Amino acid sequence: MSIISSFSYLSCCYLYLLGVSALFHLCISNQNHDGVLCMDGERRALLELKHGLVDETDRLASWVGDKSDCCRWEGIACNNSTGHVHHIHLPALNGNCRKDYRNDKEYREAIKQRLRGSLSSSLLHLKQLRHLDLSCNDFGKIQVPEFIASLGNLRVRLVTGKFS
């Protein structure tokens, strides 16, 4: 085998490997849309959280499916590299906790916009959760669940609203 043919053979192999690598990268990036899909266990934890909530205005309508990407759900943000949920932002009334209403109809509409129900301990499966905002919702003056303190990475604790 001459030097020229062996160089040509190596060039072809290199170009082939480069092409396969580029196709592999393209397939992965198309599948993951700008990042990693959310983690299965974290998706299940969020669905369990939703199951315990009363959502009259269907704010959590995007929270469906065992195979959907929870990082694209309303109020959820994930780390783009790891896919871990790091932010839950579900304040009622756009975070404006008004107490004065002009009439009964306005008051009833505001009440509908508030999440109610119970907070699931499934939140403990969100190991990378850093921010939890459930402000202005109405959890019926329940005690803030003790497990919230176990969320070690939680930096901002905004679980205000009607807790006792």
Score class of each variant (00 low, 15 high):
Ile3Ser: 05
Ile3Arg: 11
Ser5Val: 14
Ser6Glu: 15
Phe7Gly: 01
Leu10Thr: 11
Ser11Phe: 14
Cys12Ile: 12
Cys13Asp: 10
Tyr14Asp: 13
Leu17Glu: 09
Leu17Met: 13
Leu17Asn: 12
Ser21Gln: 14
Ala22Pro: 00
Leu23Tyr: 08
Phe24Asn: 13
His25Tyr: 12
Leu26Lys: 06
Ser29Glu: 06
Ser29Trp: 07
Gln31Leu: 14
Gln31Asp: 15
Gln31Arg: 13
Cys38Pro: 04
Asp40Trp: 07
Leu47Tyr: 01
Leu47Ser: 07
Leu49Cys: 04
Leu49Pro: 04
Lys50Thr: 00
His51Trp: 09
His51Phe: 15
His51Glu: 11
Asp55Ala: 01
Leu60Trp: 06
Val64Ala: 05
Val64Ser: 01
Gly65Cys: 03
Asp69Ala: 03
Arg72Ala: 04
Trp73Leu: 00
Ile76Lys: 00
Ala77Asn: 13
Asn79Ser: 06
Leu90Val: 08
Pro91Ile: 13
Ala92Cys: 10
Ala92Met: 08
Asn96Glu: 15
Arg98Ile: 08
Arg98Asp: 15
Lys99Leu: 02
Asp100His: 13
Asp100Trp: 07
Asn103Met: 05
Asp104Cys: 01
Glu106Arg: 06
Glu109Arg: 09
Ile111Ser: 10
Ile111Lys: 13
Lys112Ala: 12
Arg116Val: 03
Gln128Cys: 05
His131Tyr: 15
Asp133Ile: 05
Leu134Cys: 08
Asp138Val: 09
Phe139His: 03
Gly140Asp: 14
Ile142Gly: 03
Gln143Arg: 12
Pro145His: 05
Ser150Cys: 02
Leu154Lys: 12
Leu154Val: 10
Arg155Ile: 12
Thr160Asp: 12
Gly161Gln: 03
Gly161Arg: 01
